[in-house]
């Protein structure tokens, strides 16, 4: 399935958000995820099923003003 992850088009076999993070080697407590512009809570990632064309944002703390 084709997904847009942090602006990049990827071909992915993972079907849930948690599986996607694992497949892309994301780990740690300092991540926030959104699918199609809506927050997906950490606790809901395992049961959140992805669909072809979904836009996923994976964010973490950075410098800011």
């Amino acid at each position: 399935m084709k997904l847009i992850v942090n602006g990049e088009a990827l071909e992915i076999t993972a079907t849930t958000l948690a599986a996607l993070l694992a497949a892309l080697d994301y780990e740690g407590d300092w991540l926030a995820t959104a699918v199609n512009s809506d927050l997906v809570h950490k606790a809901h990632r395992a049961e959140f099923h992805l669909s072809d064309g979904d836009r996923i944002e994976i964010l973490s703390p950075m410098q800011g003003g």
Binding site: N6, Y26, E27, G28, W30, A32, S60, M62, Q63, G65
Partner: peptide
């Protein structure tokens, strides 16, 4: 602080 796209698998945000 801000939130930005994590490009290092979670390590950039964790370090900051």
């Amino acid at each position: 602080v801000s939130l930005r796209r994590e490009m290092a698998g979670g390590k950039a945000g964790e370090k900051f």
